[in-house]
């Protein structure tokens, strides 16, 4: 059986908020390394991979591998009943047809108990090769979100170019064009506010802004985001948490 306790409900609430517009039904795979999820969007353009590691749980017990087939919209309805600071306990049997969720406030005088019906989800699993990326950019997640939102008002696509000059996001649309260039600017006192660029080789790729804006819903998970790029392979966007991560992969667009 599974028994997993999070000190703060906000961790799972934020993860679900971050991915629910990308995927609808997915398996939460529970095993002795924690809770993992991998799912593609319907159009097979984007993939989300999530891992909540056992170290992030106040209590974690999972005797055998359990797949929890969850509709994320339904899960979000139940999670709405949890306050951010509530302790959350997830419980499931070995072949469960429901997931039990218990939310307890810090004063320990309120216990909320919910059951969420599970579903059988036959999900394909993709092997993601280890990749040496041509360019890796670490920057404030709020700034990346702002750039994606601003450019999405002008165009459907963004060209991302990483050179030794910096990383340039540019787009062209019906009303005009826009570009934002970031130069390497490490912040010694507050590293989460700096921008670092590791460049092995120049990279130039084009991506759908609709998806990037969607990924930015994970900004609440981390102050920083890591963007990894190589020519002609999917982009990797990673939001690292204290004990886990949410990663998004996005297939590039191909020539006009």
């Amino acid at each position: 059986m599974l028994e997993a306790r999070l000190e703060q409900s906000s961790v799972l609430k934020k993860v679900v908020d971050a991915i629910k517009d990308l995927v609808q039904d997915c398996n939460f795979d529970c095993n002795d390394s924690g809770i993992q999820l991998q799912a593609m969007d319907n159009s097979h353009v984007a993939l989300v991979a999530m891992h909540l590691k056992t170290e992030g749980f106040a209590l974690y017990r999972c005797d055998r591998n359990i797949a929890l087939g969850i509709n994320l919209v339904s899960l979000q309805k139940v999670l709405r009943a949890a306050q951010n600071e509530d302790v959350m306990t997830l419980k499931a049997e070995d072949s469960p047809d429901a997931l039990s969720l218990v939310f307890e406030n810090s004063e320990n005088d309120r216990i909320s108990e919910y059951d969420l019906k599970l579903m059988d989800i036959d999900q394909e699993h993709l092997g993601i090769p280890e990749t040496e990326y041509g360019a890796t950019v670490k920057m404030p997640s709020a700034e990346f979100q702002r750039i994606c939102r601003d450019l999405s008002l002008l165009s459907e696509s963004v060209a991302i170019e990483a050179t030794k000059e910096g990383i340039k996001f540019s787009c062209t649309g019906d009303i005009g064009k826009g570009a934002v260039t970031l130069r390497q600017n490490p912040n010694v006192e507050k590293p989460e506010l700096g921008t670092t660029i590791e460049l092995q080789e120049p990279v130039a790729l084009t991506f759908s802004l609709k998806y990037l804006v969607n990924f930015c819903k994970a900004s609440g998970l981390s102050n920083t985001v890591t963007i990894s790029l190589s020519n002609e392979v999917p982009l990797l966007i990673e939001y690292e948490m204290e004990h886990g991560y949410v990663r998004f992969y996005l297939a590039p667009k191909i020539g006009d």
Binding site: L126, G127, P234, A251, K253, I254
Partner: peptide, 14 residues
């Protein structure tokens, strides 16, 4: 508008 790739072109099913 450029055409969109599919992730299956890059990642294999396991």
């Amino acid at each position: 508008t450029p055409l969109q790739n599919d992730l299956h072109e890059f990642f294999t099913m396991v």
